[in-house]
Design a binder for these strands. Structure first.
Length: 892
RNA sequence: GGGCGAUUAGCUCAGUUGGUUAGAGCGCUUGCCUCACAUGCAAGAGGUCACCUGUUCAAAUCAGGUAUCGCCCACCA
């Protein structure tokens, strides 16, 4: 088979993806006896294109799905897309704007037609992009939040909530986006620091006679003077000495001349502003509450277009809120009501979608009572039925849930699930039904019409984990895969989505929607800012896949994914993954070359059959390292420690397997030591399995180059396990492992000296092994290890020696000494200084150890193994000092 | 105002229950195109672990506090 020296992702990725998909590897077998494992994808918006957040979350979910599949689970990763009500509206309104139209010009029906066209055109784009990442989603189960069945789920949920009395319709202060022309929930308001002003306005006090007395007034401070038109009270703190006497009196609202009460309100901060607050129940959430408490009039002076209403004085009616502010301030000033104006900076609410300033206003909306739903949802997290990873998010979730507020679920938009509420125009009857009613169920009038509003997008998302599995029908999918196992998402939507899924899942399916919630890091741009396509900040994952391959990107992302809240990411970092992929590729290439040569083309032995026959310390060492890696990768993935898993694989494969084991194999093979072929094949193939969740395409390709069965996939393989007996066998040979580790240190030490002292590679160097440890000496001087030392450290001769150092440089590697005789090359002064420095360091260290060992507390309280280790160190260091002194003396 | 993170090498970050000489990648220096890989190999330099005070035989790690940065929540008009 052709085996190029570079791994070329483009040549293999498309092919293997099709292969997996066509062979049904992503579709679970509902008849199998295996345990189930399911992830339901956070549905991307149909308006979206794959960004780094998707790429990261897609990678993480795919890693777990493939890991679980290899571990023997029947897995389902269920994909889908969200109709994204407001986001889609924005897109279509943009299209309309190009023709100078608004959605109101073309009407609901025409608008919905355009929206469905948009959906048909765009929904698949992001899903296809997910495929290029390698996502093992079951595309036969792709769902859309507005599918017939999912819409039925939404309606069922709404009706059940309503019947239970959890959904109500009320006039309430809500966040209104004048641009989107809809209400939005508290969570969709984004607060931004804004530099503005604060105006101090004098409100004259009403005297008993009713005249306005110039010096008799109360001053209120406001950042929104235009709302004063709707003021219906002034509130002061009942404990505020300045105003105590005014409570119960009346003030006269300037410009409007309304008489408004001065009321006592404990929440008023005495320190802030003047300590007196204007109260505008119709346009401020806090004031709304105050208004309710004090039964104040609600005067709505700003309408849904952010214009002044007819409830305001004629002069201001129809003005925009900005214009009205200007004029009102001007009028206040000319009429002497404006005390002063100060610069002020505070946070103003904006629409998360379009950044328009939010107008809080009173409006008739649908709400979902959340307290009764939150209770069980809190319990399931408190008792750890649902676990957050990293754990700290648990508190974030709980804090929000403890203080949860009712959810405004109606939106004055068109694209979405229309509220299944019907009104009878004749008798005003309200019907909430599963089927569209044909007539009024009270007066049988046919004059009925459906509520115009639709539901918040997140209402359907809240049902996603079970609506996608078939709910409200009792489906096989639902029975087999609910509760799902993992929900992986970003921190932004813990409240918007995660919390609500838990509440609805418990309410409707009577069980948690998922067991684990993994909250991944936020990928930031190189500058530390959030990536933003519109601002041109950040990188495009699709370009990275195109340039470096999906495996490179995936591995890099996993490698960087730790528990921290965010990390910076830029293109250059993908080279880590790309280089690693290439390293794996080339190791595969080398091993396959060995296995392919005519004389080696025999059946290789299995792990079980060779494990107990292993004799060479090098083989024992590499198997030991391999087993450690299997364990740490498995453990890490079980607790979503992606970075740990990735770096364990990286280090093992590159440092241990390639740089040491493979290099040594070359030498051993030249000496006809054929057992390495078995070891190479066993370890390489198993590491491919371990690597597969991270690098699916690369590992599949290599798998096929080692297993000549065109119909099977690496996904059919079995995740490596560490057998206890295998572990024991190796454990008994720990002395063998340390033999090889000493050889490593020796080689490194010699290389070090050579490089440091600039000894050219053609210079002949003899290595004298001088140690009291007989086993060690025997091992190092044996034929193969000696060859290894010679080749790896570029030593020409290797001999046993009991000499004390004479005129030479000295390397000390623990209790082992290596003398490299060098005529005329050595710099004695430099060498002496180096030795003296080392002597000093070692002496210091020894002093520390001695202190420690003289300490009774240490001896009694420290673990025995630690004490033992310190005692060993002491002996080693004392020995070392002796030898260093001797070496220094020998230099003359 | 509250909560949560972060602060470790020039840069970006690891550091799993306190315990040998604090690690990696990139960058840098030196030497190598060694017949898997220059997307590579070998060697090296580089750190008062933000600061203070404690706890402990022992602190990057634990406690308390300070500073700076970031994220989230909250009704300061």
């Amino acid at each position: 088979m052709d085996f190029p020296t570079r791994y070329e992702p483009k040549l293999v990725e498309k092919h293997w993806y099709k292969f997996w998909e066509n062979q049904g590897y992503f579709t679970p077998n509902l008849k199998s006896k295996k345990p189930r494992f399911c992830i339901v994808i956070p549905p991307p918006n149909i308006t979206g294109v794959l960004h780094m957040g998707h790429a990261l979350n897609g990678t993480l979910q795919d890693i777990i799905i493939r890991f679980k599949k290899l571990q023997g689970y029947e897995t389902l990763w269920l994909p889908g897309v969200d109709h994204a009500s407001i986001a889609t509206h924005n897109q279509i309104e943009k299209l309309l704007a190009k023709q100078g139209k608004t959605r109101f010009d073309i009407g609901r029906e025409e608008f919905l037609k355009l929206a469905w066209e948009w959906k048909d055109k765009h929904a698949n784009i992001i899903l296809d992009q997910l495929k290029s990442l390698g996502a093992a989603c079951d595309w036969t189960r792709t769902r859309f939040t507005m599918d017939e069945q999912l819409s039925r789920a939404v309606r069922e949920a709404f009706v059940r909530f309503y019947e239970k009395g959890l959904i109500y319709k009320a006039y309430y202060i809500i966040n209104w986006c004048p641009r989107c022309h809809t209400s939005i929930s508290d969570l969709e308001v984004k607060y931004k620091e804004s530099a503005t002003k604060i105006w101090y306005i004098k409100y004259p006090l009403k005297t008993d006679s009713g005249e306005i007395v110039a010096k008799n007034y109360i001053v209120v401070a406001t950042t929104r003077p235009e709302t004063m038109l709707g003021d219906t009270a002034v509130a002061v703190n009942p404990n505020d000495e300045r105003y105590k006497s005014l409570i119960g009196k009346k003030a006269i609202l300037p410009l409007v001349n309304r008489v408004i009460p001065i009321i006592a309100e404990e929440t008023v901060d005495v320190e802030f502003g003047t300590g007196a607050v204007k109260v505008t129940p119709a346009h401020d959430p806090v004031d709304f509450e105050i208004g309710k408490k004090h039964k104040l009039e609600v005067v709505k002076v700003i309408d849904e277009d952010a214009k002044i209403t007819e409830q305001a004085p004629l002069k201001y009616q129809g003005l925009s809120r900005e214009k009205a502010r200007e004029l009102i301030v001007e009028d206040l000033a000319t009429q002497g009501y404006l005390e002063k104006v100060e610069d002020y900076s505070h946070r103003v609410g904006t629409c998360v979608r379009c950044e328009t300033l939010i107008e809080p206003l009173v409006s008739l909306q649908w709400f979902l009572k959340t307290k009764p739903l939150a209770e069980p949802a809190i319990k399931k997290v408190e008792d750890q039925s649902i676990r957050f990873y990293p754990q700290r998010w648990t508190k974030v979730y709980l804090d929000w849930m403890y203080n949860i507020r009712d959810w405004c679920i109606s939106r004055q938009l068109w694209w979405g699930h229309r509220i299944p509420a019907f009104y009878c125009d004749d008798c005003n009857n309200l019907m909430v039904t599963r089927e569209d009613p044909k007539e009024c169920n009270k007066c049988h009038s046919k004059n009925i019409r459906q509520d115009e509003d639709i539901l918040d997008t997140w209402f359907s998302s809240a049902l996603w984990p079970f609506s996608t599995l078939g709910w409200p029908d009792d489906t096989e999918d639902l029975r087999q895969f609910y509760p799902t196992n993992l929900l992986s998402t970003d921190p932004d939507i813990i409240f918007l989505w995660v919390a609500r899924m838990i509440m609805t899942g418990l309410e409707f399916v009577k069980d948690i929607p998922f067991k684990d919630v993994y909250i991944h890091s936020t990928v930031l741009a190189e500058t530390g800012e959030r990536m933003s396509r519109s601002k041109g900040i950040g990188v495009d994952p699709l370009l990275l896949i195109d340039k470096y391959g999906a495996c490179a990107l995936r591995f890099t992302l996993a490698y960087l994914e730790t528990e921290s809240q965010s990390y910076r990411f830029w293109e250059k970092k993908v080279e880590l993954g790309r280089n690693f992929a290439n390293k794996i590729w080339n190791a595969g290439r080398l091993i396959s070359m060995y296995l392919e040569t005519a004389e080696n083309r025999e059946e290789r032995h299995s792990l079980n059959s060779i494990i107990s026959t292993l004799k060479d310390p090098i083989d024992i060492w590499i198997f030991n390292r391999y087993f450690q890696t299997v364990e740490s990768v498995t453990n890490a993935l079980e607790r979503y420690a992606y970075s740990h898993a990735a770096s364990a694989l990286y280090t093992f494969f590159w440092d241990d397997f390639c740089d040491w084991y493979l290099e040594i194999c070359k030498i051993r093979l030249r000496n006809n030591d054929k057992i390495v072929l078995d070891v190479l094949k066993i370890i390489f193939e198993n590491v491919l399995i371990l690597l597969h969740p991270f690098m699916p395409f690369l590992t599949e390709e290599l798998w096929h180059r080692f297993n000549y069965q065109p119909t099977s996939s690496i996904l059919d393989a079995v995740w490596p396990k560490v057998d206890n007996t295998e572990k024991q066998i190796l454990h008994l040979q720990s002395s063998a492992i340390s033999l090889f580790e000493t050889l490593q240190k020796l080689v490194t030490g010699i290389r070090n000296i050579r490089a440091e002292m600039n000894i050219s590679s053609d210079k002949k160097v003899t290595c004298l092994i001088n140690t009291q440890d007989k086993t060690l000496k025997e091992y190092l001087l044996a034929a193969i290890p000696a060859k290894i030392i010679k080749e790896l450290a570029k030593v020409s001769e290797i001999e046993s020696s009991d000499h004390r150092p004479s005129q030479s440089s000295v390397v000390i590697i623990k209790d082992l000494e290596v003398y490299i005789p060098l005529t005329g090359v050595i710099n004695f002064e430099k060498e002496r200084k180096r030795l003296e420095d080392e002597l000093q360091t070692v002496q210091k260290e020894l002093d520390k150890i001695n202190n420690l060992l003289a300490n009774d507390d240490f001896l009694t309280k420290a673990k025995p193994s630690v004490v033992e280790r310190e005692q060993e160190r002491k002996m080693k260091y004392e020995d070392k000092i002796k030898r260093l002194r001797a070496a220094i003396a020998s230099l003359g």
